[in-house]
Design a protein around this nucleic acid. Structure first.
Lengths: 250, 250
DNA sequence: AATGGATTTTCTGTATACATAGATGATCCA
DNA sequence: TGGATCATCTATGTATACAGAAAATCCATT
């Protein structure tokens, strides 16, 4: 079926939000730049009401900043901001893992998680890893992290983990694609996957502190990758939102 | 000066948000109850546009839940939800304290914090503590926690701590007033104040792990108080939002 | 030439009208 | 009498018009 450029099945608000998010993450809208509602109306095709709605949601998402005199601007992030966001995500994921371990999980709950890990094993077995495999890894990794967080069985915590992962460079899978061009790409993925196995093992054995610690360390792999990407600025197109990161000298 | 019921200096959106928040926290709007926009328009006096804006913001705040078919309903919280929210707040505050300790703070930055502590000391010195003193404690305690979080010098983290503290029963000062009627009220406040001193000491000496651990434990004082309040349901009017907590049997 | 003020323009905040989708109630048939 | 279907009605999503405020521009004066 031929899709119109505007799908009637989703609301104008959602459409405007997606459209504006793409514009921000791709760098078409520069950090610090004010987003005019009228301009947003032209680019998204929606009217002002849903556009305003989308802007409010994008502010909550962390991509926009309210201007005191009114309206919104694209937020700029320092390298430190991004590193802190990653550490924060690791911390709340760590709390989720600890809750899961302390409260116990049934083997039935662990099944999908272990299935995920087996699939990832299948991917990292190949050497070198193909670009398609990296793509699959991104999806599986996201799924693993989501399932793990849900093991906490804590809606408030799940909510906060989702919010902490909303920024693309803070999300668990944010830096996977950027790794794909690095020489020791497979090495990094093997380490990350080992950490996945360890945290599941810790949860199974109800080792809360261990589960928490390993998830924190797991996030620091992403921090390492961020530094690599920022040093050799190549392949920066693989990480949406990199345009929002302003280096110290800028 | 006589204030009109509608202050022209703030926007209709903010006024509607404050008004609706009060209605929710006071229990006038029951958990699970759908909030009609038209009804909200009547009670707040604002028109539909700012009311809708306020509803979206209250959803982000965690007080409302979106209904799939459209609109919003008042969210209900289990006792476990609230305990988890408190633990979460303690965890992110702990991260802020660790950042402050690891990165170091100048004695100039610590001054307002220590001033805060001295003022609190003045309050808890009296025995028994007056209701007015409890009120002052709430304000000073909120100020201390805000200053402490800012010591992390991490905008993303400060943002998340604020969000984790947005729910009244998850906020650092949420249970202070409920304590005021309890027999060992002063005892609890003395312990909390000692923890305040310890975390400042840890930060001064750059003991990151210690600073983090004490902030986590500090939040658990609030968790203890929650259980007390829920067991003897008296004085529940001292905690706004208690109406949102649904016990297991309900 | 630079600065201050006034004017114009553009933007956001708000109100409201309209359309569509969902909910509710009544009526008809089995 | 119970269930299903249809109609009506209400509530939300969307579009747009209007007012006030902020920002930019231009002119005048020093």
């Amino acid at each position: 079926m031929v899709e119109r450029d505007s799908d009637r099945s989703v609301s104008q608000t959602v459409r405007a939000q997606l459209s504006l998010r793409d514009l921000i993450l791709s760098g078409d809208l520069r950090p610090g730049e004010r987003i005019s509602e009228l301009q947003a109306v032209e680019t998204t095709g929606a009217s002002r009401t849903p556009v305003r709605m989308a802007l409010v949601r994008l502010e909550e998402e962390g991509l926009l900043e309210a201007i005191p005199s009114g309206g919104f601007m694209v937020k700029a992030f320092s390298e430190r901001d991004v590193l802190d966001s990653i550490e924060l995500r690791g911390t709340v994921e760590g709390l989720a893992a600890r809750f899961a371990a302390e409260r116990g999980v049934s083997s039935r709950d662990l099944e999908p998680l272990k299935g995920c890990l087996d699939e990832i094993d299948g991917l990292v077995r190949q050497d070198p890893i193909s670009v398609e495999a990296f793509s699959s890894y991104v999806a599986l990794n996201a799924r693993f992290h989501a399932l793990l967080t849900e093991l906490s069985r804590s809606p408030p915590l799940i909510r906060q983990v989702d919010r902490a992962s909303a920024l693309p460079f803070a999300s668990p899978s944010g830096f996977v694609m950027t790794q794909s061009t690095l020489p020791d790409a497979r090495h990094t993925l093997l380490i990350a996957q080992d950490q996945h196995r360890v945290v599941v093992d810790a949860i199974e054995n109800r080792e809360g502190a261990r589960a928490e610690a390993i998830m924190r360390e797991h996030a620091r792999v992403a921090a390492r990758n961020l530094r690599l990407v920022l040093r050799n600025k190549t392949h920066s197109d693989l990480l949406p939102g990199l345009a929002l990161i302003r280096m110290a000298g800028d």
